[in-house]
Write a protein that binds this DNA or RNA. Structure first.
Lengths: 204, 204
DNA sequence: AGTAGATGTTACGGGTTGGTAACATTGTCA
DNA sequence: TGACAATGTTACCAACCCGTAACATCTACT
């Protein structure tokens, strides 16, 4: 068997997993490479042999998260083929899981946001991921027949990022727990805007 | 004149101002006491004479921000006496300023959210402020005749926190720039929920 | 068996940061 | 003038953290 140790994952994978976990929990600045190496049941030297620097490790972690996000969209489209409305509704539901479930890649992205102001090499990677999500979600809203798809995309973006933030700082008792109900209401409002009562209440 | 130096503010005030500014820009973990003292045109020793530790300084800064938030509500109610609907609409507009204008106390609160997981003494202070805001906003929504005031409060909470977060990481090009338009739409939708088309689109 | 490559261990260097000690300086009030 | 409090200056410590060097160990493949 030339297989590279299927039972115990190789150190590189263990390090990435541990890093992602700890970055989520403590933030990128909040955890040291020593702690990561130890949590990965490895050591600092092999960490630095695989990743030239902590910044490089961060980039790899974020790229890994981006790859998993790719699966998110694949699954979503596969679950409701040729039914954008159902996809949009299911997006809300699944996004809700991403907010509340601790083990999600999104928390890694928001940890990366701690790197603003200092031009961390991971910044533009995060930016690309954000753009990709936005583009896909916009296409989804457009296909679902929403009147102002771009505005709904921005609304959902603010809601989900706010939810992730709120969940971190306020916990399960905070507003983030009701993300799905809120997002569903907002989506419904945008859908109704082009079907039911045109200019609802507010004279614009 | 026994007045304590009206022209140049005393060191304590200068330190608090500098700290708030730098905490906003770099986050609490991202700036050192040395830099704060220098920015305040003071030095580390007087900083530690006034505030026993960096954590204490953080708490004072947040309490200062909370006091200013008190003014926010006072001004809002004074601007539209006995007109909760106008107050709610104006709340959205003013909240939008708090998102985009760099010099705002909210950024201090979200900087404080970097302290999650480690039970920083500032955490429960932030929690209290958050509760106060929520309570006042809920009362406002109720008085404005919103059908589900609590849900709208949570929605606006997620939107504004998401906007602050997004503004930091995505800048003026991101979704945060359209916060006001989004929030107005959401508010209108909640207002219409109790007036126009009852159960809009979604069978709940 | 033996060799090469990946991994583990220990120790260290240089930098930053929170916090303290000791002393000098300034300004105020009697 | 003299005394006292607040402030400034310098130096320092201990802890932490990123990154590297040197050496030991293990594993795989021939």
């Amino acid at each position: 068997m030339t297989a590279p140790a299927r039972l115990a994952p190789p150190p590189r994978e263990r390090i990435i997993d541990a890093a992602r976990d700890l970055f989520r929990k403590h933030g990128i600045r909040g955890i040291g490479v020593d702690a990561i190496a130890e949590a990965a049941e490895s050591n600092k030297m092999t960490l630095y042999r695989h990743f030239g620097s902590k910044d490089d490790l961060v980039v790899v972690c974020i790229e890994r998260a981006a790859a998993e996000a790719e699966d998110f969209w694949t699954d979503l489209k596969a679950a409701h083929p040729d039914d954008p409305k159902a996809q949009l509704q299911d997006w809300v539901r699944r996004a809700g899981d991403f907010v509340t479930v601790a083990h999600c890649n999104c928390e890694l992205l928001d940890a990366a946001a701690q790197l603003v102001e200092s031009d961390h090499p991971a910044r533009h990677v995060v930016e690309e991921i954000r753009k990709g999500h936005k583009r896909r979600l916009a296409a989804l809203c457009r296909d679902a027949g929403v009147a102002e798809p771009d505005l709904l995309v921005d609304a959902l973006t603010l809601l989900i990022e706010g939810a992730r933030f709120n969940w971190r700082s306020a916990g399960p008792q905070g507003a983030a727990a009701r993300f799905v109900a809120i997002a569903e209401t907002v989506v419904a409002a945008f859908m109704a805007k082009s079907a039911c009562c045109g200019s609802a209440g507010k004279a614009h």
